[in-house]
Nucleic acid binder design. Sequence first.
RNA 1: GGUCAGUUGGUGAAACGGUUAACACAUCGCCCUCUCAAGGCGACAUUCACGGGUUCGAAUCCCGUACUGAUCACCA
Length: 480
Amino acid sequence: MKKIRTRFAPSPTGYMHIGNLRTALYAYLIAKKDHGDFILRIEDTDQGRLVEGATDIIYDTLKQCGLQHDEGPDVGGDFGPYVQSDRMRSGIYKEHAHKLIEMGKAHYCFCKAEDLAKMREEAGDSFYFIDPCNDLSKEQIQEKLNNHEEYCIRLNVDDEGTTSFTDEIYGTITVDNKTLDEMVLLKSDGFPTYNFANVIDDHLMEITDVVRGNEYLSSTPKYNLIYEAFGWDIPRYIHCPPVMKDEHQKLSKRNGDASFQDLVDKGYLPEAILNYIALLGWAPSEDREIYTLEELAQAFDVKRIGTTGAIFDIDKLTWMNGVYIRSMEMEKYYELVKPYIQEVLEDRYDYKLVGDAIHDRINTLSEIRDMISFLDHPEAYDDDIYTNKKAKTDPVLAKEILPKVYETLQGISEWNNDEIFAKLAEKASEEGLKNITMMYPLQVALSGRSVAAGGATAIASILGKEETLSRLKAAIDKLN
RNA sequence: GGUCAGUUGGUGAAACGGUUAACACAUCGCCCUCUCAAGGCGACAUUCACGGGUUCGAAUCCCGUACUGAUCACCA
């Protein structure tokens, strides 16, 4: 069996959206499942749409995601992406277009693009283009060529019959050849059209499985006409349903939807994003949702890709991101969290202790900023927050309890969370109080907040004995 | 408008002619607990867009209707 080769062929628009990334992921997984090759090819044949730095965004995103391509031009010892505008310099697209003319499968067209656009506009929906250039004689064509008249090259299409193909997801689709127009292969600026370059490159790069968005489903028969004209093998087609913003709209830059980079900036992990989007439009055969990239490649099955657009649900991604955070190695977690913590606290407290306190409480890294504000010195707060019905506390009771807490804490020599908790719990039981009745007032005294990640003892352990005692003293004074 | 495709809960989805229609997110309860989380347990579609048909039996097969999307460029 031939080695599987897939490719991701984006046009550089300067924005890597989630739907695109997922297409790249699927192409990657399909290749890797069978130890095949994954190729990156930038399709930039539209000179009017060039965006500065757009290729880098695509390249960097794939790299961050671990979707490494297996070949490409040498870029400082690394594989760069194939770029169509570079490939064009060798003249391959032009050559192939002219070859089709020689074979009698394509023809020169001297119609002006502006004129066609005008005709189309006037005719509206009923527009049907029959290229008059089909009727030109050899001599007429040669004469126009000699006069350097602008031309494009169009594929010859026979109106008779039907064309059908099989998509791995949507099944067999048949269309009337009458609905297929004589597509432009080579534009008058000498550039190939996307459709043409796409077919030439896919064939030359020996792509076995064409993975792309289902918006290409209806134009696939046109592609096949090109393959057939050359007598080439038609690849396996895998058209993926779109990733939607809501019931009606796709996720897109125009709608201001988050790109991959936006999500990363919001504190989502690339692994979690990839894992989540794999599940948009594909379902594993086993009852499981958390997969590494390698595991996805193992489990992936084209047959289980769905046919309907899936709505991107940020809540589920958030949950999954939390799963990744909670299950990663602690050392890795500390490193990840460190810059976010230091951004707010600088070096005032041990970032690992802070990390421990919030570990089970964050789903995204960017939540850290707000969450650790409980470590700020309590400015002004209302004593009413001592009132808590679960702890059965109020300011009056707090005033009674806090001095006992102070005394207990003062006697602790080994200052860490466990020790602090143990001693306070012991004291609580001596006093015949529930733990919470003692802990809650401490939390309020130290943070000035009714909600603080980690709880009273975690805050105390982070603050250190001196700072804890000083804040506690201030809180007691405040109550008097 | 022509052509092509799709339609299971708020969301992602499973099921491949016979189940109480899995599972996960979200939501809502309860438990645990040092607040909040995390974790545990439970509730949440009498029903698979609608209408017919085939069948002992249909979310699953067939035919219509409705709705949604894609496509009809010298854009990709």
